[in-house]
């Protein structure tokens, strides 16, 4: 385990004390993940370990399996073979209480997936009440605190339909962090947003990182990856092609596939 002090760290300091990638025991460890959808072989033996406080960015062309890999990390997708452990808990073991384990793994979706029949507060409080068994008062207090962390405390009583896409996505982030997860998974969190709304979501993600949250992000936000990621993983055809610090991947990619992909992305 890491020798670092627990608890949130102040913004500018956090970068200085973050351990190097792979230095400590990993929080998330996926080994030899294969995934078949019928005849399609989507993941072809992927290994991924994520250290505490690490921000791993997964990039790659569509159909490369990056979202599927992410969804295997909280077993929304059942790997065909391989193993996934989160804080040492084997997610694929039938004896593991998956609902308990999932509280340690927050997830944010491309399409937000807020519950449209509940207010922002209700969205965030639901699992606090029904999964963690907190009283209504305590759940709502925690939900309000989570909404404050995404700067939406004044929107607690709004329904998703009354919020902009960016605000909805921030409520979705609040819904996940309210459960105090050990790792957050982001599945293309800004892809469904109008360009002017992307900044607010990225800002919240930046603050989460500064607070020391371990994060795995599938996204096309290359600028954010360059600035914030500890490690960039490039995937293609169901495999990890290469990975390394953003300076290496963006500055001097070794593989031809990576160069081709980055070249295409940068032209847009």
């Amino acid at each position: 385990m890491t020798a670092l002090p627990a608890g949130p760290l102040a913004g500018p300091l956090a970068g200085a004390v973050r351990p190097a990638a792979g230095g400590a025991a990993p929080i998330v460890e996926a080994r030899a993940i294969h995934k078949h959808f019928g005849a399609l072989h989507v993941l072809k033996g992927v290994d991924l370990a994520v250290a505490e406080r690490e921000l791993v960015f997964i990039i790659g062309p569509s159909g490369s399996g990056k979202s599927t890999l992410l969804r295997c990390l909280n077993r929304l997708e059942e790997p065909s073979s391989g193993s996934v452990t989160v804080e040492g808990i084997d997610l694929l073991d039938r004896r593991t209480d998956i609902n308990k384990a999932r509280q340690r793994i927050g997830m944010v979706f491309q399409s937000f997936n807020l519950y449209p029949h509940m207010t922002a507060l209700g969205n965030v409080a639901l699992a606090l009440r029904k999964v963690q068994g907190k009283s209504r008062a305590e759940a709502e207090a925690r939900a309000r605190a989570a909404l404050a962390r995404v700067h939406l405390e004044d929107r607690a009583g709004h329904y998703p339909g009354q919020l902009s896409g960016g605000q909805q996505q921030r409520v979705a982030i609040a819904r996940a962090i309210a459960l105090e997860p050990r790792v957050m998974l982001f599945d293309e969190p800004t892809s469904a947003l109008d360009p002017e709304l992307v900044g607010g979501v990225l800002q919240v993600m930046r603050e989460l990182r500064e607070d020391g949250m371990t994060m795995v992000v599938v996204s096309h936000e290359m600028g954010f990856a360059r600035a914030a990621a500890d490690r960039v993983v490039f995937m293609a055809d169901g495999r990890i092609v290469e990975q390394g610090p953003p300076s290496a991947i963006f500055g001097a990619p070794r593989e031809e596939r990576t160069r081709a992909f980055l070249g295409q992305v940068e032209r847009h």
């Binding site: 909280n74 609902n99 999932r102 927050g106 699992a127 459960l179």
Partner: peptide, 27 residues
């Protein structure tokens, strides 16, 4: 009801029955 609703509910640790009762059925 879109598939993502069940996935979002399950990702926060709700069981299948809980997700059906609180998220899917009301919609």
């Amino acid at each position: 009801v879109p598939r993502g609703q069940m996935e979002a509910a399950r990702s926060t640790g709700l069981g299948r029955g809980q997700a059906l009762a609180h998220v899917i059925l009301p919609q």
